[in-house]
Simulated assay, not measured.
Amino acid sequence: MLMTAIEREREIGVMRAVGYPKRAVVSLLLAEATILGLVGAAIGVPLALGIGMVLNQFLVGDPLAFTAAGLRYVALGALFGVLTSLFAGVYPAWKSANKRPVEALE
């Protein structure tokens, strides 16, 4: 997210110059970070379950031999990934929103 904010510095500067409030810039960048986390979870959960099914078939003989605790860990992992991406976007969003438009357009 830090690289995204740096690469889009001019765009953010233009947004601030035309009147976007700091809060709107922060909200936009945090929404992008959250969407990235959700996409990662949407890819990661089926991948983890698929690998788990292959391992269950190989080791146990039943591909659906998941425990309730195991499925909870997958859900917690997805939630952790989304929250991590959200928190990772806070600093770049705040830094970008607080930069003066003139500095961002240089």
Rank of each mutant, 00 (worst) to 15 (best):
W94S: 04
K95I: 00
I43Q: 03
L55N: 09
V26L: 04
A78G: 10
G50A: 09
L86N: 05
L64S: 13
F66W: 12
R23D: 08
R10Q: 07
G40M: 04
V39M: 08
G77L: 01
A75S: 11
K95H: 05
V14Y: 07
S27Q: 07
V54M: 11
V26S: 06
G61I: 12
V102R: 10
L29W: 04
R10S: 05
Y91D: 09
Y73C: 01
A33Y: 00
R10A: 07
G81N: 14
M15V: 07
V25F: 04
T67A: 07
I12T: 11
T4E: 05
T4G: 02
R8L: 09
L76Q: 12
N98F: 11
G40Q: 01
L29G: 10
M15I: 05
V54R: 05
S96H: 01
A17P: 10
F66C: 08
A68N: 10
F58G: 02
T67I: 06
L71N: 07
V90H: 01
A31D: 00
L47V: 12
L29C: 07
G19M: 12
V45D: 13
N98M: 09
I12G: 00
F66A: 08
A69M: 10
R72G: 00
A17I: 11
W94Y: 15
L71W: 11
Y73L: 11
I43V: 15
G52T: 07
V74E: 08
F87P: 02
V39L: 15
V45S: 13
G13M: 15
P101F: 06
V39A: 08
V25A: 06
L59I: 14
L30H: 03
V60I: 15
E11Q: 13
A24N: 11
T4A: 09
R23Y: 10
V82E: 00
L28I: 01
E103Q: 14
A88F: 12
G70Q: 14
M15A: 15
V102F: 02
L38Y: 00
L64G: 08
G89I: 13
G52P: 11
V18R: 02
L49E: 11
P92W: 04
G70H: 10
E106Q: 15
V102E: 10
L2F: 10
P46E: 02
W94F: 13
A48T: 14
T84E: 09
V82G: 04
V39W: 03
L105H: 05
V82R: 04
V102L: 13
A17C: 13
S96K: 00
A5N: 01
V82K: 04
A69I: 12
L105F: 09
M53A: 07
